[in-house]
Design a protein around this nucleic acid. Sequence first.
DNA 1: CGTCTATTTGAATGTACTCAAAAGCGGTGG
DNA 2: CCACCGCTTTTGAGTACATTCAAATAGACG
Lengths: 192, 192
Amino acid sequence: MFDQINNNVTRYHTFNKEELAFFNSLLKPIRYKKKSHLLQAGEVCNFEGFITKGCIMTYLLNEEGKETVLYFSVENWWVSDICSFNEQTKSDFYIQALEDTDLLILNPQSKEELLFKVPAFERTFRLMIQKNLSVMQNRLHSIIAKSAEARYADFIKRYPSIPQRVSQHHIASYLGVTPEFLSKIRAKLAKQ
Amino acid sequence: MFDQINNNVTRYHTFNKEELAFFNSLLKPIRYKKKSHLLQAGEVCNFEGFITKGCIMTYLLNEEGKETVLYFSVENWWVSDICSFNEQTKSDFYIQALEDTDLLILNPQSKEELLFKVPAFERTFRLMIQKNLSVMQNRLHSIIAKSAEARYADFIKRYPSIPQRVSQHHIASYLGVTPEFLSKIRAKLAKQ
DNA sequence: CGTCTATTTGAATGTACTCAAAAGCGGTGG
DNA sequence: CCACCGCTTTTGAGTACATTCAAATAGACG
């Protein structure tokens, strides 16, 4: 049950058996049904979750109700609104299960306990955020510097499993185009 | 000399006099001339710098040589390629002084020493990255969901001092439009 | 099988880009 | 002091990429 998450955190730092056992004792398994929300805008995010199975998206709505997908998250990824979680402020995000999804979650108390007992996790979490930042920098670059067609090509190359699991509507929103235009891009690429 | 930076780090956690004194002892002041580079793509970033005076931009070049500005940084902001710095990997970024700029910098050794002697800084740095991530999430949202005109309006409202210090060429690149089109946006907004 | 939703297709439109040229502006030297 | 140079910004015409709206088609699910 904890193999996946233990593999994940040991990518950043080697923890010993006791440390991992303590870490695991703090995790709470939870299941979300497809289409249910883990978080809605205006709520405080009280979890950092590791996905053992399933698929989740994090999105925003603007004033006119237009959706912007910030992240897709699948098995072996973490999901949270880190800022809301850490500062216990209201989130702007919606986090929604796109499939039935199993998570292991930390709440603010258990995370604090973990950091107190095993301070090396502080570094682990920092490196995770750093990785996240790096991904966002890349995405900003690609959306500024590349055409929609190039962004889509990059996306299916980098995340080949996502298009099979997620509707084009959501992928279009992630790429920053309309679903209609994504459909035209796909038609064009399929012809080649 | 250290007031600015001490104010900055104590926004996240209250350090005592000795801790701050030790922190300050690790900082190295350095000055960059206008137009000089602090970092070029392909190099490893060996600094985390706090700007006491001046203005800096972090940008990327794509294959065709098109520039994308990721960050402008002015007084009381940090500047670095955090990922390159922490993992000691080659950077994709260029970091350039837009004015004569004074910095206080940490190198990897001094940062490590700091974290070892004053572990609370680990949290401080994590919160700084988190803030950074939050800014990037916002920017991605605005570039996906808003028109260039709205992005420019937001930008001058949020960072009113930057347009006075930075060329429109660079601002256009930050906003993800051409300089010509930014000029047209400005003409339109001025008319109103 | 029928209903509901997702995807595709097409025509008209709009936002932003390219390229070229003109205007503005700051610095330098005569 | 002003004339000239180089660089930045503006303006304009034509074009391309992406959107909107509407309708048709395909797929998914009870």
